[in-house]
Design a binder for these strands. Structure first.
Lengths: 193, 193, 193, 193
DNA sequence: AATGAATGAGAATTCATTCAT
DNA sequence: CATGAATGAATTCTCATTCAT
């Protein structure tokens, strides 16, 4: 019995995901340039050629991986709401960020490593900004409401802090007191100052 | 009549510096792996071979560049004092960090980009930690004195924040309100909380 | 429809052999260091890169070539017999040695040329000795039986003579009276002296 | 007081010899291709450039070294005599050969190593033959007189044997019973057979 | 006579990508 | 859909040689 169109589609989808997950693992662990297509193929137990059946190029592959990560982020934080943040919502935001950080450490290490290569940044940064900007706007409103004298600066501060924590966490996840840090951040930004 | 020892010494010194500055520029702008020795040679208007007259390998070259940066940092912050931080000293520390960040933006972009490539991190991280650890200790004492309930966590928070700011700054220095941020950090960490 | 495992295996086998035979030819004629991978590739009408698909490095390539030659030798002379040599067996030994010399002149030129490069000797010498030592032991017994007063010295003499002949032969095979020499050696070492 | 022409000449001579002896040492120990001009200069504690003041090229340098060795050989064996060899003279010949071998082991190792690289052989071989041929002629007469049925073959045998011994000796001088071997050769070729 | 900085051709090696099967 | 042999451009690095001083 020949497979249906749909079954093929599903096989393709699974293969794509397999390749991407192996590639993410390797990119994050060994670096983008130290990870050859051969290694990925070996890791996924498929042939080199097949990868080109699913992705146009190595660059295309990493682009997809990064975009996927961004999309995960978007799904969680999609702010199609009212642009208004409550204390609870801020706590949720911080908590979710750290939860994703914990469960996708590899991805975020990769993300930061890529971010630093300006050519990749140009590629990916734009898309990331589109996601971040509305969040930042909402946050600005929130901080304004909280009495911040210079909410724009405080937003920057918040963003930098979050990224700094991500950075430190992915570099050495074992000893990082993520939960304590969460508490502190929450306090820092919810109290009226 | 042959050149004197001193003249050779000077030529070497100048060439080394030229190569390092061109390399730093390119490494930071295009990434370590996207910067070939050929490009560096072209940038410095010298031959490929000459670079190997001054540096044993590409790896040796980047190691020297990074160590130079660390040394600059050390010179400013060498804490063989009393291990005690006053409010003024903290302000000085933050201020100096940002001043160095501004004047060595390229270097710090490079530093972060390397940090993320685990193999390079192993190379450099150790040396950096040796510098950082005493600073962190001093800071811990300071925060304790300021009444921090969990100074270890606060030190982590501070370090992450500083790195986050550095990261954001090097990625987009133009629009970053570094001075305002400085104020905010200072306030955050000097008030009794 | 993809090629079967067996077809690939055969292609690989043939290509490996092609590369090895071209490389042997060139190594022997021009020397190891004067033979670049490019030259070998050109000689085999394949790309440089393909050679690395079959051999890990230039050193690996020559190692395989030399080991192949040793293996040929071992196949002929494998002395897991009784350790006893008759006159006929000695004649056979000498005859076979010269036959191999004639049919593998290139290989032996290469072998001698490598022998003299101490680093390569270390690589290969050990394996060769393993083969030679038992042969020499058998020969010593034989010469003892023939009445040699100092069989150890005579074994050395025999080995040196055989290698000297090989050396002269590979340097100028055209005019070398190999068959007459064979007779003489046989007489020299079979008569009681 | 300015140095005289002669003094300069002597300095030059000494430097040439220094360079050659260092180069011979290194060529023999590490191989021709593994010995860079830089290494030689370092070994002789002079500058790279100066070597080119004395020798046109690396090839020129090795050519001179090899020719020197041949000349040493010629000095000892120059057969401007009667072309007739007595038993005593043969013993002297063999003895001298081995004496030179012992005192110049490095040189002979180099010589053999070069011999095997056909391009060098072409360079040097001709000159060597000019030296060897008269010796071989004299030896042929001697062997004829001794009753050799095929003196040409015996000359070849003798030459091969001598080279074989040299080869084995330079490869592992420590354990080689050179003196015993000498006795055996002498007996082998002086007895009527 | 002497120096060593500088050159540039060429070496080994890697790897993304293609393509016949 | 799948394979892996094959390519070739690019990379790091070496080194004989030149030359200004």
């Amino acid at each position: 019995m020949p497979r249906t169109e749909k079954q093929f589609e599903q096989i393709r989808e699974e293969k794509r995901d397999l390749i991407k997950s192996v590639a993410l693992e390797l990119f994050a662990k060994e670096g983008y340039y130290n990870t050859s297509i051969s290694k990925i193929a070996r890791g996924a137990k498929i042939s080199k050629g097949l990868i080109y059946n699913y992705f146009e190029s190595k660059e295309d592959l990493i682009k997809e991986i990064v975009f996927d990560g961004i999309d995960t982020f978007i799904e969680v934080f999609d702010p199609n709401k009212d642009g208004i943040l409550t204390d609870d919502e801020l706590e949720f935001f911080i908590g979710e960020t750290f939860r994703i950080l914990k469960s996708n450490t590899n991805y975020w290490r990769l993300y930061f490593s890529l971010l630093m290569q300006s050519n990749v940044y140009k590629l990916v940064g734009r898309r990331f900004l589109k996601l971040i900007i509305p969040l930042m706007k909402t946050l600005k409103n929130y901080l304004e409401w909280k009495g911040s004298k210079n909410p724009l600066v405080d937003v920057r501060l918040f963003a930098a802090l979050m990224d700094g924590i991500c950075l430190h966490y992915v570099l050495d996840p074992k000893d990082f007191p993520l939960d304590d840090i969460k508490e502190r951040i929450f306090k820092l930004f919810t109290i009226n100052n």
